[in-house]
Structures are given as structure tokens and as C-alpha cells.
Design a protein around this nucleic acid. Structure first.
Lengths: 158, 158
DNA sequence: ACATTACATTTGTATATACAATTGTTGTAT
DNA sequence: ATACAACAATTGTATATACAAATGTAATGT
């Protein structure tokens, strides 16, 4: 765990203070930390498969398409990070044979990306691990608290 | 805003489902998204000053020392990302004259880093902007909800 | 038909990050 | 005193990311 005791103390102080300013600062910092904790554990699951988190996300996005292809723009839009280089990310997935790439005949500017059998297989293998990790991460929360957290995070996104 | 409507719909579906598995998945994904939204806005504040978020954090850590120096290990421990290269990050801050670097006389293996006047000035300039951004990010939440959110995030970190 | 603009992806380049190996310094055991 | 291990920071290298410019394709106006 990379959270430092020193930092935790500061955060708790902020939390117990009455200031609203500090509360938003604490939330921002906490999100950074939690994000990091999550990233570390998921990356750990992905490491044996030589996948980055974004590559994993793109695979899941493509699986969600159930065979329908997506072009690079569509993929980019659905990615968590508005990353600038979907081309190179997809190139890496192609090299690993997890996705296929065709030029769209209707509009030759576009390329169509589809997940392969091998890509689906690797996702299947990963599913259980990831679900387990997600459960572990949130294991400190009751299901009621988890629901609360989701509601609050969703509000921030709107 | 980089959150896609499509994604938001999925998230809400998960949220309204009863499955606990889905709830932890939703939380994990939401944290990623919120983290990204926050990162974007703070990075936007920092851009005019040519600072990355970690560089900004290191400056704040050093300010918190109130003159007492920190060596690279101490800095690394307090950083949000357990980044591997504090040397190079600090080098950049030195180039910008925001921090100073001395070799520790008691233990010549260590280097002592202190924030400069110029570093303090830039932080002062940034303080208001960042506070404002933090308020904006959490503006959808009441102060009660904000407190809840902080409590929940803190639980995950423990 | 031709030029112009918009579109979709790719390529180039600079910077950031992750991880391993190296350098120089200190502490410790014999 | 010497050798060896532990420590703190730096350097090297490969990969990832951010942003800008370039390439190739399609749509539009005259």
C-alpha cells in the first residue's frame, strides 16, 4: 500500500475540520490516491498478459460490440483517457493478435477494429481476476456504502 | 467533459442493478473517470506555469516542510505516484528555480531539497486557482455529501 | 472538373514514466 | 584495516503519453 501514514493523518484532519474548502481538497486528493491504489492492483492482474490498463479497456469496449467493428475515433471516444494515440495502442493489440484491423470499404479513411477469438479468450481469463480485485478494493465498504459511493461519484461526473 | 453519454448510461444501469459485483466494478470505473476529470482541470491550471501534477505536489510537500529540507527518498514516499524517478522530477524543478539542492553534510549520500522563494511565489499564485477548481469539481455535491464521499474514500484507503 | 475544406488516421518529436543497472557513500563484521 | 553489505541517488534504456504536423480520403462549392 502506497498511502503514507503521514498523509492519512493530514487527510483525516481535513475531514474532521468544518471547512468546506478543505473538504473539496480532501476529496480531490483522496480520488488521486484511490485511483492509484486501484491502478496498481489492476495493473498487477494485467502484467502476466502484457496489457496496459487502456489496452484492457479497449479490449472490453470491443467485446461489448459483440462482433460489430469500431473505428479508431469511436474507440477513442469510449476510452477513459482521451489519449492522443489510439493508432499506436491498437497497433500493440494487433501485434499480440488480440484485435484485427480492416479498412472500411464504405469510407476508406476509416479503419475497422474487431476483437479476435484470442482477444476474447484473454478477457475471459482475466474476468475472474479483475472481478476479484474489484471486490477486494471495495471490501471495506458495505453494499449500502458502495451504492452511496457510486451515487456520489456519478454526481461529480454530471 | 470526456465522459461519454453511452458510458454514463451503462454506469447508471449498473448502479440500479442489485448485483454487488457490478457495484464494485462501477465504483472502480467511476474512480477512473472522476480521476481523469480532476486531472484535466488541475492540469489546465498548471499549464501556464509549466508544471506537471506531480511537480506541483512535490512543491506543496516542500512548502509543508516550512523550511526544513527533505531528501529524495522522503519526497518519493510522500508523492501520490510511487514514481521511480524523483531525481529527474526534482531536476526540472531546479531548472525552473522552484527548489534548491544541497548535499547533506551529515550523510553525503543524501541530497537536501528546499523550496525557493520563487517556488513559494508560484504556489501562492496557484492556490486560489486550484481551490476554485476543487470547488467546481465538487460543486454538484452538498457539503454533507462531500463529507460522506471523503469518509467512503478514506475507508477504501485503509 | 477543380480547388478548398473537412475528415480519419498516421507519423514525428519531445517529454514522462517504469524498471534495471550503476555509482558513490556509509555501516558493519571479521 | 579490509571486505562486504546496505543505502541514497543517478544514469541508461525501453516504453508510454501528449501534442503538432503530415498523409490520404471524402465532401462541398463554384
Amino acid at each position: 500500500m502506497y498511502i503514507q501514514l503521514l498523509y492519512m493523518k493530514e487527510l483525516q484532519d481535513i475531514l474532521h475540520s468544518t471547512s468546506n474548502l478543505s473538504a473539496s481538497k480532501a476529496a480531490v486528493i483522496s480520488v488521486f490516491y484511490v485511483n492509484n491504489v486501484i491502478k496498481e492492483s489492476i495493473l498487477n492482474d494485467l502484467k502476466p498478459f502484457d496489457l496496459s490498463i487502456e489496452q484492457f479497456n479497449v479490449l472490453r469496449i470491443l467485446r461489448g460490440q459483440k462482433g460489430k467493428p469500431l473505428n479508431l475515433q469511436d474507440i477513442q471516444e469510449r476510452m477513459i483517457n482521451k489519449m492522443s494515440n489510439t493508432t499506436r495502442l491498437v497497433d500493440k493489440l494487433i501485434k499480440k493478435n488480440f484485435v484485427k484491423r480492416n479498412i472500411c470499404e464504405q469510407n476508406r479513411r476509416k479503419v475497422e477494429i474487431v476483437i479476435t477469438e484470442s482477444g476474447l479468450d484473454i478477457l475471459k481469463e482475466l474476468d475472474d481476476k479483475i472481478i476479484n480485485t474489484e471486490k477486494n478494493i471495495t471490501s471495506q465498504l458495505t453494499s449500502e456504502e458502495l451504492k452511496q459511493l457510486n451515487t456520489l461519484l456519478l454526481k461529480i461526473n454530471n
